[in-house]
Computed example of a mutant assay.
Amino acid sequence: MRYTLRQLEVFLTIAHHQNLTRAASELAMSQSAASSSLKDLENQFDIQLFDRIGKRLKLNDQGRQLRPKAEALLQQAKEFEQSLMQHADAGPLNVGATLTIGNYLAVELMARYMKDHPSAPVHLEVANTAQIAEQVLNFQLDVGLIEGEVNHPDLEVISWREDEQAIFCHPQHPLAQKQARGEAITDNDLLQADWILREPGSGTRQTFDRAMHGLLPDLSVTLELQHTEAIKRAVETGLGIGCLSMISLDAAIQRGSLVHIQVPQRDFSRVLYLIVHRQKYRSAGLNSWLELCLQHP
């Protein structure tokens, strides 16, 4: 064999960082050793995998074509090593989840998975939809659980479960009082309110923007926050009204600290998705995780 797994590891780490120094540091190698490893790989096959732009190494077309195959091969090697060392069918799994899923759904799934595969640790990364999709595309994550819609030719998007977002407010808010009197909440009421929303790029914000078509330019957005709990706390203190998944609101609505505002003229339904890189090697662990998610929506 004219290449080594270490050479592939160096190639992929440099592709991730686009910087030789950071790649060498992650791999606990000297910069010269990492550079030599890459040069040896390129020279053995008379190819160039990166364009050199100053100190930055940027994947060229050849490198981009070979990267998914190298990722799959290295993943297979790691899985084989895991089986040899621990006699396990599943190895470590890197899962990405958007905020609502990460806080309210992913931990239970992780517990189920680790019960079935006690020697297979799961690492959970929580970020917004755009960030999770980017990490799956860069092979930093094995699978993503997202709230927003993504459209990329390299991503397989699997419908997972239905969800519903809801507008909510403090029990003493004028909208809650109006609803309690049996009066319908109109679009004009929504325009008069101060809003506390998730940040652009999140799946929750994407669903909100779609549902509020025609009103968006005139809405009064007081705050944009990255954390679901921060939005709930801000609404509970009377700073405005919000819109989040019912998954995150059920408990607060049940205890009466928040009120679900009914707006049947606006559609806040959505689908949650699983995303995997189309060229990602489907390890036993990854297949097991996907099956678990689809069996326990």
Rank of each mutant, 00 (worst) to 15 (best):
F168Y: 09
D189G: 07
Q179H: 09
P118K: 05
I101G: 00
D89E: 15
P171E: 01
E164V: 14
K178V: 03
A72C: 01
E162R: 15
T186S: 12
H173A: 05
L137Y: 07
I146N: 01
D89V: 14
V143Q: 00
T98E: 02
L73M: 12
T186R: 03
L191F: 02
G201A: 04
E183M: 06
Q131H: 13
E79T: 02
D187Y: 10
L191R: 08
I167R: 01
S83N: 13
D116T: 08
A166M: 09
E164Y: 14
I132W: 05
E71H: 07
Q165P: 00
H123A: 14
E147D: 09
H123M: 13
V143E: 07
L137M: 10
A72T: 01
Q135D: 10
E134H: 13
A106Y: 04
L84Y: 09
L84P: 10
D154S: 12
F139S: 06
S119H: 14
Q165D: 08
G144L: 08
L197T: 13
D154A: 12
D116L: 13
Q76H: 10
V95N: 09
A106K: 00
H87E: 12
L175K: 00
L141A: 06
L155W: 03
P121A: 10
Q140D: 11
A72Y: 00
Y113Q: 03
N94L: 13
R112S: 05
R198P: 06
S202N: 02
L73K: 10
Q165C: 05
L73H: 10
